[in-house]
């Protein structure tokens, strides 16, 4: 009797924020307290420097931005960056999808080995993986040796310090970021769907194209955004493997801050890169929400 009366009583104003409304939830105040460390870190470590960066880019008025707009060089670097990121994303998806697909089908030892092949590179430093590509691609590197020994080319080919080398190495490094979201989505698809498609008369190819692929698109899109955004800001790999002709935004920003010490201009470049990334992600999401495969699943 006592309990029933107590629960019928109108709670005080303080009680509404300190007591949970039902057993499965935290009270609003508790929820805020629990998120506080993250919110604080985020504010101090991310929002504040970001605001500082944008302010810095306007120290000489809009001068940095005018210079950026007038000089075709910077526009060129920006384009190269976007094209490179797009190419890397494309390769990651094309190479990553079959791996993710295989991971959902494999069992036992084969599954373990495949998972290791995906994860171990992820745990290895980007610097090491970039140097590994230098070892492979340089004039007296493994690939040139093999080509010459096989008699396929007389002189060593220029493989390193090219745009293709950058795309190759970046694809290798970003591949897990495409595989994992696709794998996560494919794994949630009930195996009965593919069986049903077969039962209704669809062969393996049509089952894949009409059922599995459309239903895995959310994972493909997640992987694409992840790869693309990471590729836009890639620094070490293009700096080591790319030649001066294939300079990317991150390298340019690095040069401005550490060599030329033109911080306001570097800040302006960063701001432009950031807004480009945001714009592209926004457009991408917008395009996807219009496409059917995205919002009708689950």
């Amino acid at each position: 009797m006592m309990n029933i009366q107590a629960s019928v009583q109108r709670p005080s104003r303080l009680a509404t924020i300190t007591r949970p409304r039902d057993a499965s939830r935290f009270a609003p105040l508790t929820s805020w307290l629990l998120t506080l460390p993250l919110v604080a870190t985020f504010a101090i470590g991310f929002l504040y420097p970001l605001a500082k960066l944008v302010t810095l880019s306007f120290t000489n008025g809009a001068e940095s931005y005018i210079r950026l707009g007038q000089d075709a060089l910077y526009f060129g670097v920006m384009t190269t960056t976007v094209v490179t990121a797009a190419a890397v994303t494309g390769f990651c998806l094309v190479l990553g999808y079959p791996v993710a697909f295989a991971m959902t089908r494999l069992r036992g030892k084969a599954a373990l080995i495949t998972a290791a092949c995906v994860f171990v590179p992820l745990w290895t430093s980007v610097l090491i993986r970039s140097y590994a590509w230098i070892v492979l691609l340089q004039r007296k590197g493994i690939i040139n040796d093999v080509l010459q020994d096989a008699g396929l080319s007389v002189h060593p080919l220029k493989l390193l310090y090219t745009q293709s080398a950058v795309v190759l190495a970046m694809t290798h490094i970003l591949l897990p970021f495409a595989i994992l979201p696709i794998y996560a989505t494919l794994r949630t698809l009930p195996p009965d769907l593919a069986r049903a498609a077969a039962n209704l008369g669809a062969g393996a190819v049509r089952t894949f194209l009409l059922i599995t692929l459309p239903l895995s698109l959310p994972g493909v899109f997640a992987g694409a955004i992840l790869c693309f955004v990471l590729a836009l800001g890639f620094y070490i790999t293009p700096a080591l493997i790319g030649g001066p002709g294939s300079m990317l935004m991150a390298t340019l920003i690095g040069q401005q801050t550490t060599v030329l010490l033109d911080w306001p201009f570097a800040a302006a470049l960063s701001t432009v890169l950031l807004s480009d990334a945001l714009l592209i992600v926004f457009l991408f999401r917008r395009a996807l929400s219009l496409s059917k495969g995205f919002h009708n699943v689950h």
Partner: peptide, 20 residues
């Protein structure tokens, strides 16, 4: 014979309707 070449209808336990 492969399942898609058999002429057999099937109703699955969880229906297996195509969600898209």
């Amino acid at each position: 014979l492969a399942p898609n070449r058999r002429n057999i209808g099937m109703v699955f336990q969880k229906y297996a309707l195509f969600p898209h």
